[in-house]
Design a protein around this nucleic acid. Structure first.
Lengths: 170, 170
DNA sequence: TGCTTTAGTACGTGACACCAATCAAATTAA
DNA sequence: TTAATTTGATTGGTGTCACGTACTAAAGCA
């Protein structure tokens, strides 16, 4: 268990420092003991990333590699597009794909319509690993939420989806 | 905007592959369009980590460094404890603290009660940066949720807190 | 006083991630 | 059509990070 996430990653111990950003108008006072949306999501993200890190490590991958495989499951993008998708610099992609390719997980194919571009896709092995990784990660993340009620999980799922949806199709 | 998170990080394009883990019994069928708890949280975590990465970068830090500062805001732990807290190997801590110390953000002091141990604490600069970073990160994360209703944010905050709470005091 | 455990560090390796520079194909302009 | 620009990707260099192993020294125990 690599991640702890026990204490406020961001919270300000200083009491008098209410952020004047968004809190006042929209947000009703969070219940006492509630971390607030910022700390709550920050810590949650560390928790989830920790789990993803474990899963990746079990398969000899990094989180980024695992994510790469996930992205490629239903796509065959160029390096550029891939970089945008993962939020990385294109120069970072070369090495990332290089390593994945060296392990026989992905393949570079020349684009038929653009002589400079390459299209990255999963190999058989890559597909299998992506499948396993996704399944395993799914299990572990669900396990994180195992102590919530089914209703809470459904709500959380719905809220997470709603939040993410606002940033998908930029 | 480093992170996209537009598509399922984990989802299985294959339809016939229902995970036999937790889905059947407890989880009511997620609404159509819902990512599900696993993908939802995974993507959410990438989104949040992306934002944290931006904030850190703006201050010339990495996410880990930023988190380090956050942890030290209300603590003065030894290397060991720090490592456990961040989910890192203790050998990783040396370099992490080294770099932060080199930038004048943290300080190593010998433990009064244990001749081998050192206590890590924030310097003035470190404290200031931690404060700024936390504030900025708070803003940006709240901005992520800006398109939700106040009610949704409150619920999300509460659910995130509840989920995290189950893993804080291991 | 020896033996074992514990706290940190040193060192080597590999994965990332960025920037700046480069190269070739594709596009656009002249 | 040729020249100039833009675009897709790679290369090289730097710095961060994380791990495992090995090592020193202080603590704790017998």
């Amino acid at each position: 268990m690599p991640d702890d996430a026990s204490t406020p990653a961001l919270s300000a111990p200083e009491p008098g420092t209410r952020e004047p950003g968004t809190p006042a108008p929209g947000s009703p006072e969070p219940a006492s003991g509630d971390l607030g949306i910022a700390d709550g999501l920050a810590q949650l993200s560390f928790l989830v990333q920790g789990v993803l890190g474990e899963v990746a490590a079990e398969h000899g991958l990094s989180v980024v590699q695992l994510r790469l495989l996930g992205v490629l499951r239903d796509r065959k993008p160029g390096m550029q597009e891939l970089a945008r998708h993962l939020g990385l610099d294109k120069s970072s992609m070369t090495g990332l794909v290089d390593r994945a390719e060296r392990r026989g997980l992905v393949r570079r194919a020349p684009s038929p319509r653009d002589g400079r571009a390459v299209l990255v896709s999963l190999t058989e092995d890559g597909h299998a690993l992506a499948r396993e990784g996704a399944a395993e990660a799914g299990h572990r993340i669900r396990a994180l939420a195992a102590h919530l009620t089914g209703d809470q999980r459904a709500r959380l799922s719905s809220l997470a989806t709603a939040l993410v949806a606002g940033h998908s199709a930029l």
